[in-house]
């Protein structure tokens, strides 16, 4: 018998209300993602990629249907419970890095660890480990403004993995980077997926970025129109 899926969406629909208008964003979406899978979400603007990402990450709730992650129906959790669940299970990587500008790289990475019961010493050890994984040893005391875009994104990735979540959600993680730097970041994400077995769900417009993922989903008008296993990435892995 095969292992239960890491992420499962059953008949998920999502609507937004804009004044008197109801705008359907996702319609009848069913999806299963296995543990350790690297998923790329593609599609035109307004297709529902980010909404899907938000649902999987517990940032938003489905209007209808179920989003089950690691056996937990996210729709049944209270706001406080889902906040705690995100802290324990999800790491976030944003297009514009979204580091706190007044904190150093190490302090930014430490932010999610402040929510744990770890001692200060242990937090610092975890921060050092995370920064080492993303190749930023020696940059602990640098502020975001003292780092390049690629380095900022590495700090953001270190922040995302600091609490060792099983799921990383990345929204256009290379959208603000040049090709060379983008490749380095994508390489890092692949490494996190391959060596640390992180489940990654990445939204991207970039086909080259999507090719790094083991599975590519195409959305259009809120519906899943294509679901492709990327053999080349699997082979590379």
């Amino acid at each position: 018998m095969s292992a239960p899926p890491s992420i499962e969406l059953r008949g998920v629909e999502k609507e937004y209300r804009r004044d008197e208008f109801v705008v359907p964003v996702l319609q009848g979406l069913d999806l299963s993602v296995a543990d350790g899978e690297y998923l790329a979400l593609m599609g035109p603007s307004g297709s529902g990629k980010t909404t899907l990402l938000n649902l999987v990450a517990g940032l938003d709730v489905a209007t209808r249907g179920q989003v089950i992650v690691h056996g937990q129906d996210l729709g049944r959790l209270s706001e406080g419970q889902i906040t705690r669940w995100r802290a324990d299970n999800v790491g976030f990587i944003f297009q514009t890095y979204n580091l706190v500008p007044v904190l150093t790289a190490a302090e930014n990475v430490e932010l999610p660890l402040l929510l744990t019961k770890l001692s200060r010493k242990r937090r610092r050890e975890n921060v050092a480990t995370a920064l080492r994984v993303v190749g930023l040893e020696g940059r602990e005391r640098h502020y975001p403004r003292q780092l390049s875009g690629g380095q900022e994104q590495r700090v953001a990735i270190a922040r995302a993995i600091a609490t060792d979540p099983f799921l990383l959600v990345a929204d256009e993680p290379t959208g603000d980077l040049d090709r060379g730097t983008a490749d380095e970041i994508l390489e890092l994400l692949e490494q996190l997926n391959r060596e640390f077995e992180k489940t990654i769900v990445m939204v991207t417009h970039d086909p080259l970025a999507a090719r790094r993922a083991g599975r590519i989903l195409h959305l259009d008008k809120g519906r899943l129109v294509d679901d492709v296993i990327n053999d080349s990435a699997a082979a590379a892995g």
Partner: peptide, 16 residues
């Protein structure tokens, strides 16, 4: 606004 949204996304609760 965005920074607070990020903090809440990574697990900072309302009370905090």
């Amino acid at each position: 606004t965005m920074e607070i949204a990020v903090l809440k996304a990574i697990g900072f609760g309302k009370g905090l």
